[in-house]
Design a binder for these strands. Structure first.
Length: 709
DNA sequence: GAGCACTGC
C-alpha cells in the first residue's frame, strides 16, 4: 500500500479575514474591529444607511449580536419587529434559542422564531428569526411587511431561490415604504393592494390589516444584507452602491495546503491524505467532503481495507459517514465520543458544510467537487452533475477546521485551480424550475416578470416556459394575470403548481381525501428506505402496499396503512408514543420514517389550507378510476405514450424516456401513463407513474389535446 | 433493473 505520495504540499496561510478585507477594498468597505466601540459603531452605520451590507464570516457574532444591538438602540419602538432570515430551519431555530438565552428571556417572548410547522412567536416578539421562505409567505398576506422596522437577510451569499426572490421584493418594498412609490421598479402598487384584497376576502380576521393600509404612510424599512462571500460588491451594486462594512471573525487560523499537480483520482488522493494525516499529524479529527452516498460508502470500504494492513497501534481510526438520507440515529454517531487514543474520520456530503457542525475537527480534506442539481426548461428534465466548488464554498469548508483551534485544510487541487474557481456558487434561480417563483411573484402583485429587478435574471426561455405551463394550468390568464379564483388558490398552497392544481380539481372529482395524501407524499424525499444488503427483504415487505394501477396509489396505500396501524394500537394521542411506533412501523416496512413524518405534517397543513379555501373534502372510496381521471386532468402535461420498442415518448416534448425501475409499472408497461417528474441519471427516467386511458386526455384537457381524427 | 448534494413554503 502506498501511504506517501506527492499529494500534499505548499502551505499558504490564508486567514479568512485577510481575504475578505482585501476583496472589500475599492468600493468603500470599512473594516470594523470587534472592540468596545463595536456595538456603537454598527448601530450608527444602520442609523445612517437605509441599506447596509455586512461582510463577516462565521464566528463574527453578526447573526446573534446585531439584532440585540438594534433592539437596545430602540429600533423596535412602536411595537415594530426586527426580522432575521436564514436559508435553513435548523439555523433559524438554534440561533433564536441562543439569543433568547443570551437575553435571559423565555423563547417565544421577546425573542422567537417562525419556520414551517413550527411557530415560536407571540405578540411580544420583537426579535424574530425565520427562514427566508417563511418571510416570502408572510409577504403574500402583508406585501409591505409593515410589521418590520428592520429586516436582516443572513447568508445571502448562498443565493438560494428564496433569498434571491426576497432580495428583489425587499428592494421594492423599501422603495414603497420610503415614499418613492413611483420609482419602485418591481411592484405595481395598485396591483399589490388588489392582491391583498383578494387574499382577505375569504379571511374575515385579517380585514383589519387591510384597513391599516388605507391612507397609511409607511415607516421606512431598514435593510441589512449579511454575506460571508468575496463578492460583497455584487450586493452593494444591486442596492445602489450601498455601504459595506466588514466584521472580523473569531476563527482560528487554518493552514491551506494544495497539491502540486491536479489529481486524476480524487478518491485515491483523499484516501492517501486521510492516512497521511492519521499517521503523521497531531491528534484531531478529520472531515472529508465527498459528493454523495455512493462515494462515501466506497471510501468507507477502502479505509477499512487499508486499516487492516496497518499495525495494531496505527489502527485507531474510526470511520463515520454522514449524509442527509442516512437515518438520524446513524447520523448522530458522528457526535459520539470515540475510545481514548482513537481518531475520527468523518466522510460527509456538503451537509457538513453548513447544516451540521461537528466538534473536534482539526483537519479538512476538500477534493473541490460537489454534486449540483440542474434543470432544463425546454425538456423539464432534472439531472445531477459534478461541478467544482466555488471559492466561497472552499472557504466555508476550510473554516470547519478552525472552530476550536488552529487547523489544516488539504485541498486536493493546485493553488492555481483555486484562483480559477467562481467567487460564489451559481445562483439557484438560474438552474431551477421557475413555475413556483413566478406564481408567487404574480400573487405579490408583480405582473411584469421580465421587468422584475432580479439580482441575477433567469433566462428568458426559462421564464417563457414557466409562464406557458402556468397558463395551461389556468393559474394565469392569456394576458398573464393571476386568475381568479384558481390562480389565487394555487399561489396560497405551499406545493408545486401542478400539485396545487390537482387538489383544486380533486374537489370536483370527489377525491380530495386521496389527492391530499398523494401530493403530501409526492412532496417529500423518497418514501422507501432499502439498504443495499436488505433489498430483497424490503421488496417483499413493501409488496402489501402494491397496486396494479401505479405508484400514486401505492403512496396512498402506505399512508393509510400507517394510519390504520396508529388507530389499531390506539396511541395516537400520546405524541411520544406515536413517534416511537412510527419509527418501529417504518423499520418493519422499510419506509423512511423521516419522509413519512414529513408527509404527515404537510398533509395536515394543506388539509387546513383547502378547508380555509372552502373546498369540499370528500373521498372517492373504492372508485379509483375517478381518482386516476383526476390525476390525468391535472398532470396532462406529464403524459407519455408507449412506443413500439417499449420506450415511452413524452407527448408534450416528444422526448424518449423510460419508466424508472423502482416503479410498480416497470414491467407492466401500460400504453399510456402520467408521471410526476423527469430525472436524468443513466437514462431519462419518469418517476412515480400511473396508468391512464389515452382517450381521457382530449376529454379532460381539450385545451391541450384533440381527439384522434 | 436503478441508485439522488442540500434547502424551503
Amino acid at each position: 500500500m502506498v501511504l506517501r505520495a506527492s499529494v500534499v504540499v505548499e502551505a499558504v496561510n490564508l486567514g479568512c479575514d485577510g481575504v475578505s478585507l482585501k476583496e472589500c477594498k475599492g468600493f468603500g468597505c470599512v473594516s470594523i474591529r470587534k472592540d468596545r466601540k463595536f456595538e456603537k459603531r454598527l448601530v450608527e452605520e444602520v442609523k445612517s444607511n437605509d441599506i447596509l451590507i455586512i461582510v463577516g464570516e462565521t464566528g463574527s457574532g453578526k447573526t446573534t449580536q446585531l439584532p440585540q444591538f438594534l433592539f437596545n438602540a430602540g429600533f423596535c419602538r412602536d411595537g415594530k419587529i426586527i426580522g432575521i432570515t436564514q436559508p435553513r430551519r435548523i439555523a433559524a431555530v438554534s440561533v433564536a434559542k441562543r439569543v433568547a438565552e443570551e437575553c435571559g428571556v423565555e423563547l417565544g417572548q421577546k425573542v422567537g422564531y417562525s419556520v414551517r410547522f413550527d411557530d415560536m412567536t407571540s405578540s411580544s416578539t420583537r426579535i424574530k428569526y425565520m427562514t427566508d421562505g417563511f418571510l416570502l409567505r408572510e409577504a403574500l398576506l402583508d406585501p409591505y411587511l409593515s410589521r418590520y422596522a428592520v429586516i436582516i437577510v443572513d447568508e445571502a451569499h448562498e443565493r438560494t431561490v428564496h433569498t434571491d426572490v426576497l432580495l428583489g421584493l425587499l428592494k421594492s418594498v423599501q422603495n414603497v415604504r420610503s415614499g418613492s412609490v413611483n420609482q419602485c421598479p418591481n411592484i405595481d402598487h395598485t396591483k399589490a393592494n388588489n392582491g391583498v384584497m383578494m387574499e382577505k376576502e375569504n379571511d374575515a380576521e385579517s380585514t383589519g390589516i387591510l384597513k391599516q393600509y388605507q391612507g397609511t404612510k409607511f415607516s421606512p424599512l431598514k435593510l441589512i444584507i449579511m454575506s460571508a462571500s468575496l463578492d460583497a460588491q455584487i450586493f452593494s451594486e444591486y442596492f445602489g452602491s450601498a455601504k459595506a462594512v466588514h466584521v472580523q471573525g473569531r476563527q482560528f487560523p487554518v493552514d491551506i495546503l494544495y497539491t502540486y499537480h491536479p489529481e486524476t483520482d480524487c478518491i485515491d488522493a483523499a484516501l492517501i491524505t486521510i492516512f497521511q494525516i492519521h499517521l503523521e499529524e497531531s491528534p484531531g479529527d478529520i472531515l472529508v467532503f465527498l459528493t454523495g452516498q455512493e462515494e462515501i460508502e466506497y471510501v468507507e470500504k477502502l479505509v477499512q481495507e487499508s486499516l487492516r494492513q496497518l499495525t495494531e497501534d496505527n489502527r485507531k481510526l474510526k470511520v463515520l459517514p454522514i449524509f442527509s438520507s442516512l437515518p438520524s440515529e446513524q447520523q448522530m454517531q458522528v457526535f459520539m465520543p470515540v475510545p481514548t487514543g482513537f481518531r475520527k474520520v468523518i466522510l460527509a456530503t456538503n451537509i457538513a458544510e453548513t447544516s451540521v457542525t461537528i466538534p473536534g475537527i482539526k483537519y479538512v480534506i476538500d477534493p473541490g467537487l460537489v454534486k449540483a442539481r440542474t434543470y432544463c426548461a425546454c425538456t423539464g428534465m432534472e439531472s445531477l452533475i459534478f461541478v467544482p466548488t466555488s471559492k466561497a464554498q472552499a472557504l466555508q469548508r476550510s473554516g470547519r477546521a478552525g472552530r476550536e483551534g488552529p487547523g489544516k485544510c488539504f485541498r486536493l487541487y493546485p493553488e492555481i485551480e483555486f484562483e480559477k474557481l467562481r467567487d460564489s456558487t451559481i445562483p439557484e434561480i438560474t438552474r431551477c424550475n421557475l413555475s413556483n417563483v413566478i406564481l408567487q411573484l404574480k400573487a405579490l402583485g408583480v405582473d411584469d416578470i421580465f421587468g422584475f429587478d432580479f439580482m441575477e435574471k433567469p433566462s428568458r426561455d426559462a421564464v417563457i416556459k414557466s409562464l406557458e405551463i402556468l397558463v395551461l394550468l389556468d393559474a394565469i390568464t392569456e394576458e398573464y394575470k393571476l386568475s381568479d379564483p384558481v390562480g389565487h388558490q394555487m399561489a396560497r398552497l405551499p406545493l408545486k403548481p401542478i400539485h396545487s392544481k390537482a387538489l383544486i380539481l380533486a374537489s370536483q372529482f370527489n377525491c380530495l381525501e386521496e389527492m391530499l395524501i398523494t401530493v403530501a407524499m409526492l412532496s417529500v424525499e423518497s418514501i422507501f428506505y432499502a439498504p443495499r444488503e436488505k433489498l430483497e427483504e424490503a421488496q417483499t415487505a413493501t409488496k402489501c402496499f402494491s397496486s396494479l394501477e401505479g405508484d400514486h396509489l401505492i403512496l396512498i396505500n402506505i399512508y393509510r396503512a400507517f394510519d390504520e396501524f396508529l388507530e389499531k394500537s390506539k396511541i395516537g394521542i400520546n405524541k411520544e408514543k406515536a413517534e416511537k411506533s412510527l419509527r418501529k412501523w417504518c423499520k418493519e416496512n422499510f419506509i423512511n420514517s423521516r419522509s413519512l413524518r414529513h408527509a404527515r405534517e404537510i398533509h395536515r397543513q394543506i388539509r387546513r389550507n383547502v378547508e380555509q379555501m372552502g373546498l369540499h373534502i370528500t373521498s372517492c372510496g373504492e372508485e379509483m378510476l375517478q381518482y386516476r381521471r383526476c390525476l390525468a386532468a391535472a398532470c396532462f402535461i406529464n403524459a407519455a405514450l408507449k412506443q413500439s420498442d417499449g420506450t415511452y415518448s413524452v407527448l408534450s416534448s416528444n422526448q424518449v424516456v423510460q419508466i424508472h425501475p423502482s416503479s410498480v409499472l416497470f414491467r407492466t408497461k401500460p400504453d399510456c401513463i402520467i408521471f410526476d417528474e423527469l430525472v436524468r441519471t443513466n437514462q431519462n427516467y419518469m418517476h412515480n407513474v400511473t396508468r391512464i386511458d389515452y382517450l381521457w386526455l382530449p376529454e379532460l384537457a381539450p385545451q391541450y389535446y384533440a381527439f384522434p381524427a
